[in-house]
C-alpha cells in the first residue's frame, strides 16, 4: 500500500496574452482563468494510479488563496480522495517557504497517523519556475529525492522511477518514504467523469493556516518584454502557397 501526497499550485493560464498585476508582483489571471501545470497534471495522474494499484490513498495539497480550492476539487474529481489546503496568498511565498509549509502538512498528518509514503510534485511550477520546491522538501523531511521523472512503479516498500536522461532512459530505485518531481509526458492524465465530480463535491477539504510567516521570493518585480514588431511576408494560404514556397527555396539556393 502506497499513500501518495501530490502537491499542486494554482497558476494563471499563460497560454494566451500575459498581463501583470498593478504592483508587478504577479501575473493577473482574472481575465484568463487559472489552472495547474502539465507536470502537475501528470503528477496527479501518477498519484492516482499508484494509490489505486496498491490500495493506498492519494491526497492532494496546495498552498494558495481561497480560490485554489477549485484546483483541489479538480484533483479530487479525478480520483484523489483527500485534500489539504494551506490558505495563503502564494505570491509572498518563496520556494523555501512553500517547502516548509508542505513539510508542516506532512508532519501534521503523520502526527494524526496518516503517513504519505511518496510525495509527488511538479519539476517546476508554471508561473515561478523555481525548479526546487521538491528538493527543498526532501531535505526538510530527510527523504531521498529524484527529479524530472516520467513514470513510477511501486514494488512493496520501494519504487522505481524512470526519466529521460542525456544519453537514454535512466532508472532510479528508491526506498520509501521518498520525494519525486515529475515531468509531463510519461503518463496520460485522465479526464474527470460526472460521478467523479459529484464525489469530489462531498469531500471536505482540510484547511490550515501557514505554520510561519514567509521569508519571501526575493522578487523585485516582474516585467513583460515588449513584442518585437513583425516583418513577416505571408506567401499564401494552404496548399496553393506551394509554388511560392518552392520558388523561394530556389532563390535561396537550398534545392538540390
Amino acid at each position: 500500500m502506497v499513500n501518495v501526497l501530490v502537491c499542486i499550485k494554482r497558476v494563471p493560464d499563460s497560454s494566451g496574452e500575459v498581463l501583470l498585476t498593478d504592483d508587478a508582483q504577479s501575473v493577473d489571471g482574472r481575465h484568463v482563468g487559472f489552472t495547474i501545470s502539465d507536470h502537475e497534471n501528470c503528477a496527479v495522474e501518477q498519484a492516482i494510479q499508484l494509490a489505486t494499484a496498491t490500495g493506498g490513498e492519494a491526497t492532494v495539497a496546495t498552498l494558495g488563496p481561497a480560490e485554489a480550492a477549485e484546483q483541489l476539487r479538480g484533483a479530487l474529481a479525478l480520483g484523489c480522495t483527500a485534500a489539504t489546503h494551506v490558505v495563503a496568498d502564494s505570491t509572498g511565498f518563496g520556494p523555501a517557504d512553500v517547502a516548509r509549509e508542505l513539510a508542516a502538512v506532512v508532519r501534521a498528518h503523520e502526527a494524526e497517523g496518516r503517513s504519505h509514503d511518496l510525495i509527488l510534485l511538479g519539476n517546476d511550477a508554471a508561473d515561478s519556475g523555481d525548479f526546487q520546491v521538491g528538493i527543498r522538501l526532501s531535505y526538510l523531511l530527510d527523504r531521498p529525492v529524484v527529479t524530472g521523472i516520467g513514470t513510477i512503479e511501486a514494488d512493496g516498500s520501494a519504487i522505481s522511477a524512470t526519466c529521460d536522461g542525456p544519453t537514454g532512459q535512466e532508472v532510479y530505485e528508491l526506498p520509501l518514504p521518498a520525494v519525486v518531481t515529475m515531468l509531463e509526458g510519461g503518463v496520460e492524465p485522465r479526464y474527470p467523469t460526472v460521478s467523479g465530480r459529484m464525489k469530489a463535491k462531498k469531500i471536505v477539504i482540510e484547511e490550515r493556516e501557514p505554520s510561519a510567516a514567509p521569508a519571501g521570493a526575493k522578487r523585485i518585480k516582474l516585467k513583460v518584454p515588449p513584442p518585437v514588431p513583425s516583418q513577416v511576408q505571408v506567401l499564401g494560404e494552404g496548399s496553393s502557397a506551394a509554388d511560392a514556397v518552392v520558388d523561394l527555396f530556389v532563390s535561396l539556393g537550398v534545392t538540390r
Partner: peptide
C-alpha cells in the same frame, strides 16, 4: 513563430507540406 518569421504560409501543415513536396519532386 509566424509573426517572428521571415515568411509564412497560413494553413494546415498536413496539406501544405505534402503540396510543397509534390512541387519539389515534379521539378
Amino acid at each position: 513563430m509566424v509573426t517572428k518569421a521571415t515568411y509564412a504560409v497560413i494553413g494546415d501543415m498536413h496539406e501544405v507540406v505534402p503540396a510543397i513536396n509534390e512541387r519539389l519532386k515534379s521539378r
